[in-house]
Structure formats: structure tokens, C-alpha cells
């Protein structure tokens, strides 16, 4: 069997192709899709999902998950708003909020690695807890009067193009994540951990340390996203980014990251993120209601768990027919 043929059914390639098809179709048939403002909205609205999808991909590859990310983002935004209201300098607030994200992630990581609890359960718990703290901190206030140069950066575009300024730092982070997952010993270990944790341990890989680092980085990225969210939408509220974890997990799984761990590529995950983002954008343009959009996201989540498995079974069947 030529390798190109088995490659043809790799799921991340399928998702990439779907994304291209959707974009081409939307450019030609959906009114208003192609104008610069809409494209900048599409990218800007997708960036929070994309930012958190980076560490989430690594987590899922290693067989874990973090559902508390949207709450961590909300908590960071709320704390930022509260401290800003209290008159603290923004240059002090941002590092503090990032530190808070690190703590949130560390708590998740310690509960999972030290107490051996399943991350799904732990982070459903902290999903509620972190959001609750956010509400205690900020109440129902909305803080909007952040310094204009920060707001401008988070919402601005590069020159007259449709490209948001915030895309550049994201591309840098994406490049770092790709290298870490696909080219470093750390990333290689994550695949081994996700595919067979016991064998990874027997190979001398420090499984718990790897996971603790991942949860911590995920917390950090979630709080960074929370800060970006509050500035991008010029609004810090306790309920910022509510439900975002659903989109993130759906996008990552859609991108071919195996829910059971050990399989997937960051390229696929990011293609999944932008496929979902473009789809939501198109649905908004077509006046599909927000509720229906959530239904579509949910259906995609189910398809995304099925799709890669079907694709893999096809390639396994082909390989079996050729190799025996």
C-alpha cells in the first residue's frame, strides 16, 4: 500500500480540506463573509478558542482534559476588572492575573496527579468553583474602562488589512506549541503517556510531572485568554467566556485529537478550531439563532469523536488488505 493512500484518509487532512471547502463556499455564496470587517470578527472571535486549544490539545493527547478553562478565563477577567476598579496599575494587574491562572491550573494538576482523581471530574468541579469565585469577586459589575492602548491592541487590526493584531502573538504561540508537541522529547512523551501510561512509566518517563506541567500551562493560557477576552470585548464580567470549554473541546476533537489520548496533530486541532469558528460565523451571517448554533456545536462534537475512528478503521482495513 503506498503511503499516500493511507494518508489520504488521515482525519486531520480531512478537516483541513473541509476548512478550505467551507471557506471557498462561504466566500462565493454567503453575503458579507468576505469583507474585511467580517473576516476580522471571525478571527478575533475564534482566537480565544484557538489560544486555549493549544494546551488543550497537549492535554488530550496525554489522556487528560481540562473543562475548567473557560471559568479560569472568566475568573482572570473578573479579577482584572476588580483590581482595575480598585485603582491598581494595569502593568501590575496582568502579571497577577496570569499568576492566578497558573494557580488555577496547578490546583487541577495537583488534584489529578497527587490524588489520582480523573481530570474530567476534577475540572467539572473547578469549572463551577472558579466561576463561583469570579462572581464573588466582581458581582454583576461590568468593567469596561481599561486603558485605550490595551483595548486598541486587543481589538485592532494590522494597517488596513483584516488581520487582527492579536493574531501575531497567537501564531508565535502556535509555532511554539507545534514544536513542543511534535519535535521535543516532552511532546513525544505525551503521546506515549496518552497511548499507554504504564508503558511510559516503565520507560522512565515522569508521567505525573508531565501532566502537572500541562495543567499549569493550560491554566496560564486560560487566564491569558481571559485577559484578551476582557480587552477584546472591552468588558470584564464574571460570566465572560461561559461555555467556551464546549467549543474548545469540540474543536480539538474535531481536529482529530483522540479523546482516549495518544493520537492527533496540532495542525489538525487548529484546523478544527477555525472550521468551527468559520461555521459559527457563517451561521451568524445566515441568521441562525444562537441556540441552534449550540446544537450544531454539539452535533459536531459527536461527529468529531466518530469521524477519526471511522477514518482510522478505513486505513487499518486498507493496511490489513495489503499487508495481511
Amino acid at each position: 500500500m503506498p503511503e499516500s493512500l493511507t494518508r489520504a484518509v488521515r482525519w486531520d487532512t480531512v478537516v483541513g480540506a473541509l476548512l478550505v471547502v467551507l471557506l471557498l463556499l462561504s466566500f462565493s455564496t454567503v453575503d458579507g463573509f468576505g469583507n474585511a470587517l467580517n473576516l476580522s470578527f471571525l478571527i478575533g472571535n475564534t482566537l480565544p478558542i484557538a489560544l486555549i486549544a493549544l494546551p488543550m490539545t497537549l492535554l488530550v493527547v496525554s489522556g487528560e482534559i481540562d473543562l475548567s478553562v473557560a471559568s479560569t478565563a472568566g475568573l482572570s477577567g473578573a479579577v482584572m476588572g476588580k483590581l482595575w476598579n480598585d485603582g491598581m496599575a494595569i502593568e501590575t494587574i496582568i502579571p497577577l492575573c496570569l499568576l492566578l491562572g497558573v494557580v488555577c491550573g496547578l490546583v487541577n494538576g495537583l488534584l489529578v496527579t497527587r490524588l489520582g482523581l480523573p481530570s474530567l471530574a476534577v475540572t467539572i468541579g473547578t469549572l463551577a468553583a472558579y466561576r463561583g469565585i469570579a462572581q464573588i469577586v466582581l458581582g454583576s459589575d461590568a468593567v469596561t474602562d481599561f486603558p485605550s492602548q490595551y483595548l486598541d491592541f486587543a481589538a485592532g487590526r494590522i494597517g488596513n488589512t483584516f488581520i487582527p493584531q492579536a493574531l501575531l502573538p497567537f501564531v508565535v504561540l502556535l509555532a511554539i506549541a507545534v514544536v513542543v508537541l511534535h519535535a521535543t522529547p516532552f511532546g513525544r512523551s505525551l503521546f506515549a503517556i496518552g497511548a499507554n501510561e504504564e508503558a511510559a512509566r516503565f520507560a522512565g518517563i515522569r508521567v505525573r510531572r508531565h501532566k502537572l506541567i500541562l495543567f499549569t500551562v493550560t491554566g496560564l493560557m486560560a487566564s491569558l485568554t481571559g485577559i484578551f477576552w476582557a480587552l477584546h470585548y472591552a468588558s470584564a464580567r464574571y460570566d465572560n467566556a461561559t461555555g467556551l470549554e464546549l467549543s474548545i473541546v469540540a474543536a480539538v476533537l474535531l481536529g482529530g485529537i483522540d479523546f482516549d489520548g495518544g493520537r492527533g496533530t496540532l495542525g489538525g486541532a487548529i484546523a478544527g478550531v477555525f472550521l468551527l469558528g468559520a461555521l459559527q460565523n457563517v451561521m451568524s451571517l445566515l441568521n441562525v439563532s444562537a441556540q441552534s448554533q449550540i446544537v450544531v456545536t454539539g452535533v459536531l462534537l459527536v461527529i468529531s469523536v466518530l469521524g477519526p475512528r471511522v477514518a482510522r478503521q478505513i486505513s487499518v482495513a486498507r493496511a490489513a488488505r495489503s499487508a495481511g
Binding site: 513525544r188 512523551s189 503521546f191 506515549a192 497511548a195 499507554n196 508503558a199 511510559a200 516503565f202 520507560a203 518517563i205 495518544g262 493520537r263
Partner: peptide, 14 residues
């Protein structure tokens, strides 16, 4: 001993 659906190369490489 092995990660069954990882390649021979990468299993030895672990």
C-alpha cells in the same frame, strides 16, 4: 513494555 500503536522506531526511541 510497548506502546502498541506506536511505531517500532518510536518504541525503541522512548
Amino acid at each position: 513494555g510497548l506502546v502498541m500503536d506506536m511505531s517500532i522506531e518510536r518504541n525503541i526511541g522512548l
